[in-house]
Design a protein around this nucleic acid. Structure first.
Lengths: 160, 160
DNA sequence: GATATCTTGACAGTTTGACTGTCAATTGAA
DNA sequence: TTCAATTGACAGTCAAACTGTCAAGATATC
């Protein structure tokens, strides 16, 4: 079936297929790793956001991630219960508390990054060739071409 | 690539980031398109599977997609209710019915593919080339390197 | 051919992670 | 000072996966 497919776009469709497969492979591995630590992709996404961008308010993160603040709030509540983040007084806004990493949270995310490094290390040592930079560049260009033609992704998905 | 010591995994991490972003962009666009037609990613995934592999039983598809047959059954039930698939007598098994595309289902998936083609057409005309094949090859190699180091993805995710 | 062991379909319920909607209390700006 | 917008809190919806269970029907083994 699926006859009448444009021959012109064959390469592009294959690239899309590879992106899909790679994403799922990475997501599967990451989820397996996170599960061992009692974390989920969405929890890590927020930890990572704070780690990268510093303490932030819930509405800030919701906006940055194109998600509803209620959804972020639910994630933050879990992280608070786990002791991975804490609320901090916000100097610029009296009602909207900042969410900050605790020491435990910092340690947690550091361990996860370290384990990722290990896996990447195993890949790079066993991999002789591959134009990694070029592939990144191609994907970046591809995204640029697509942007403006439609809406981007919105939710927190499995995090490779 | 330059193997050896200077190689921290920066390039690789960037590639992973690009894969993530690209996947989400594609997923977002696809979901938006599907929504207009009252479909979802998982419904399309099953339609596409049947389109690619021919009429199949629910347990067959569950096995192929590493999902529980109950989950596939739920999706198939929806597709049946929408008139996009129908049950067909299975010559090789008297109890396990085959799920086949109806004419409406075939038309539906064809329309979706056509629309995808349109988008891809807009991309390819506006794009001066880029090493699409090479990027696909790199991703394929990357997946090959990763395979065996962890578990792959299992579920039906948003379909770009 | 009789029996034992999968399969299959059909229900029922749970979980997760996003969503929408609403409300009162603050807050910051006009 | 008044007022619209923001924030936190709470309640409910929804999609898509999951688990568990059962009986009827098929397959395979003897």
């Amino acid at each position: 079936m699926t006859s009448g497919e444009g021959m012109d776009h064959k390469e592009l469709k294959e690239l899309i297929g590879e992106v899909r497969k790679t994403f799922r492979l990475l997501a599967g591995m990451s989820n397996a790793m996170l599960e061992e630590r009692g974390l989920t992709a969405s929890l890590l996404a927020i930890l990572e956001y704070i780690s990268d961008n510093g303490s932030s308010t819930v509405p800030q993160m919701a906006s940055a991630k194109s998600m509803k603040r209620q959804s972020i709030q639910a994630i933050v509540d879990k992280l608070l219960a786990m002791g991975l983040v804490e609320t901090v007084l916000n100097p610029t806004h009296k009602r909207s508390m900042l969410i900050a990493l605790t020491e435990k949270g910092t340690a947690s995310i550091r361990m996860i990054f370290a384990e990722e490094m290990q896996v990447l290390g195993r890949v790079t040592t066993g991999w002789t060739g591959g134009n990694i930079e070029q592939a990144s560049q191609t994907l970046r260009e591809f995204r640029l071409q697509l942007t403006g033609l439609g809406t981007g992704g919105t939710d927190l998905e499995a995090r490779p």
